[in-house]
Amino acid sequence: MKKKKGWKEIPIAGIIDKGGTAREYKTGSWRTFKPVVDKPKCINCLQCWIYCPDSSVLVKDGKMEGFDYDYCKGCGICASICPVKCIKMEKG
């Protein structure tokens, strides 16, 4: 493991002095329930993609392709918003 920086080396005041650093912090371990999509039922309306607060819905060529479990916290907003109820929240 990389040695973490000491107090003399880090920016003062807990400031993060650049953008886009959320990518470096994987929040998937916070999850209790994970969203699972029943793909044949999905109509690719992409509402789950719009509403996901962690940008964890994977989309390619306009099609919903599943979830990025490295960052999905399991909040369940996608399952709640899905108009055809093809996303289920499962343990794990």
């Binding site: 973490k4 920086k5 107090w7 880090i10 807990g14 400031i15 993060i16 002095d17 650049k18």
Partner: peptide, 23 residues
Amino acid sequence: NPVTYGPLDLQDFYFEHKRQEAE
């Protein structure tokens, strides 16, 4: 030059920031 003030600072860095404050 985007910057974040006041992010979560847990067991791994909070102590270093308080050490800076003391100094």
